[in-house]
């Protein structure tokens, strides 16, 4: 395959899988606002070098719009809205994942490759990308990769399981470190307090 064919097939791949070549830094043209805007990153006690690092990360692009759409769908399957608490999307978990894969580059390949694995699986089974597949179809795939396979009955899903495990970890961490998630958890610290020992009722139970 010569260079021109390579480019052609990459382009075809991008149409088929939706993963474009628009991942070159600086090519992003939309003006989507991240959860924490670059102007605000200094507000958690950064020194100059750290501030510059954060701004550099914010200015970079890794995951494409298309990839992020799938990430958001996955996040909301992992932690949907409940009666009391907001969903992963409400907590802007996809924005967190968008940032963290640039900040911790080890996450990049497993996420990008995993998303392609997921689309490939969805196309093979339903003729549609994962994001475009129906809710019940999406869940069919998720149920194949969301649980361990101790008896090795479905080894073909092993890579999908690794990917889902990472997505689950990043989603849980992103959600429960957001305001919505902290409230959902019921963590009531990080404020001035008086500590006078274990509450009586808890002490009695233990």
């Amino acid at each position: 395959m010569d260079r021109r064919d390579t480019i052609k097939s990459l382009l075809l791949g991008s149409i088929a899988g939706g993963v474009g070549l628009s991942t070159v830094p600086g090519c992003k043209t939309d003006d989507k606002t991240p959860a924490i805007s670059p102007e605000k990153v200094g507000l958690y006690g950064r020194n100059e070098a750290e501030l510059a690092h954060d701004q550099k990360i914010f200015a970079e692009t890794y995951l494409t719009e298309y990839e992020l759409t799938t990430v958001a769908v996955l996040c909301d399957i992992i932690l949907p809205k409940t009666e009391k608490f907001g969903s992963a999307s409400d907590a802007k978990v996809a924005d967190f994942i968008e940032f963290i894969v640039k900040d911790i580059p080890n996450h990049q390949l497993p996420i990008r490759g995993g998303l392609m694995w997921l689309d490939h699986e969805s196309f093979s089974r339903f003729g549609k990308s994962f994001a475009e597949a129906s809710g019940p179809d999406q869940i069919k795939i998720i149920d194949d990769i969301a649980y361990p396979d101790k008896e090795n009955k479905k080894p073909e899903f092993a890579q999908g399981r690794s990917f889902f495990n990472l997505m689950r970890n990043l989603t849980v961490t992103g959600y429960f470190t957001s305001k919505i998630g902290i409230d959902a958890l019921g963590y009531v610290g990080n404020r001035p307090n008086i500590w006078d020992g274990i509450p009586e009722d808890v002490l009695k139970r233990s």
Binding site: P34, A35, I36, V41, L43, Y44, G45, D54, I57, F58, F96, F99, I100, D103, I104, T173, G174, T177, S178, K179, I182, N190
Partner: peptide, 11 residues
């Protein structure tokens, strides 16, 4: 500070 005040949540 709260974890969400850091874009990397304190990583």
């Amino acid at each position: 500070k709260w974890p969400w005040e850091s874009p990397r949540r304190g990583a």
